[in-house]
Simulated assay, not measured.
Amino acid sequence: MRITFDDLRVFVAVCQAGNLSAVARDLACSQPAVSQHVKRLEQATGVRLLERGPDGVTPTSEGLVLYAAARDGIVGVDQALRQLGEMARGQVGCVRITTGATTIRNFMSEAVVDFRQRHPHARLDFRTIISSRRCFESLAEGVVDLAWVTIADSIPGIEQRPVVELPWVLAIRDDDPLADRSSITPADLTEIRHIQLPDNAVSRIHLDTALNRLGIQLAPESGVADWNTAVLLAELGAGHAIVPCLPYDSAAAANRPIRFQPLPFLPPLTVGWAARRWETLSPLAGSFADMVEERCRNR
């Protein structure tokens, strides 16, 4: 029995949704039609691909093998069709980028200007996503071409390229007793009121790992979604924030009651680009990635 592209596309959708009815609604077809696509794949491969349960369906171990391969293939074809469509319509192209909330200002502003001058008819489509994990998922799903992330451990189907290492600093209000210290020691951190990032943030995991190796356990004072908010709360005296060394509105810093104390005993945080495959990036996406990297390394 011949496997069709639609069979694979429906199977990938089922694995992602975990529910046949939901996929049927999204595709505006019947649930038996969705089941038929999966059945054809199971007959062609000779293995069971889905486990059916009261709460929906999950891929079997064999199904996971097919899902990973089919997802990557479909994403690649969809990206190629998008680029061909742009060429057919006479459009120069678009680069889709996902970033964290602080990325464009701190890492990309100069490169955006350079890119616009070099490619005046091309389009940059920025999609703000706070979590690096969600950025990786957007890449795997083919929603974006590039992601600026905290570099993580190896992720199947994703290639990462480190660009810059960021030292850690302690953000504190200038009337805090730690503000006048000539240096901060690991022991000093045990007494701070910690403003922390979400548990699933990759940068939070890096920081917690480094602190644990020093035997430091921090009691959280409050939680925030991004580094800029953590710095703002520290400035307001709501706690102390351990953040990567970034400008944080440096033009106005002289008039703000905030200090940034270096923490050289913590290993720096590495950030950079991630893509599905560098060799398949469009020339425009590769050009923008290179511009950002060059600007960061020239600082």
Rank of each mutant, 00 (worst) to 15 (best):
P54M: 03
S132Q: 00
T103C: 14
N228T: 13
T229E: 15
A171R: 01
I192E: 02
W278E: 14
L81I: 02
T45Q: 11
R134I: 01
N255R: 07
L211P: 03
L211Q: 09
R295Y: 05
E62T: 12
I205K: 11
L81H: 03
V38Y: 06
S131I: 05
N255Q: 10
A289V: 10
S35W: 05
A210G: 02
A152I: 03
S35K: 13
V10M: 12
T229N: 14
Q36T: 07
C15R: 05
Q31D: 13
D7R: 04
A219M: 03
E110S: 13
N106F: 04
A187M: 12
V57S: 01
G46F: 04
A13C: 04
G93S: 12
T98H: 03
V149Y: 00
V143E: 13
V12D: 00
S282D: 11
D145A: 13
C15I: 06
V271A: 11
S35D: 13
A13F: 00
Q16E: 11
D188H: 04
G56P: 08
F115P: 00
Q261A: 15
I158G: 14
I205L: 06
T60C: 10
C94F: 02
V202K: 05
I155C: 07
T103E: 11
L246N: 01
L236K: 13
A187Y: 03
W168Q: 11
R297Q: 15
R181H: 08
S287A: 15
R297P: 11
R277T: 10
L232G: 07
A140P: 10
V95H: 01
A70F: 09
P59H: 05
N19D: 15
L20M: 15
R96C: 14
D175L: 09
H240L: 10
R89G: 11
R127Q: 14
Y67L: 09
I192V: 11
A70P: 05
A140G: 08
D208T: 09
A171M: 06
V169I: 11
V77A: 15
G73D: 08
G73W: 00
W273G: 09
N19C: 07
R134Y: 12
V34R: 00
I155G: 02
L284D: 06
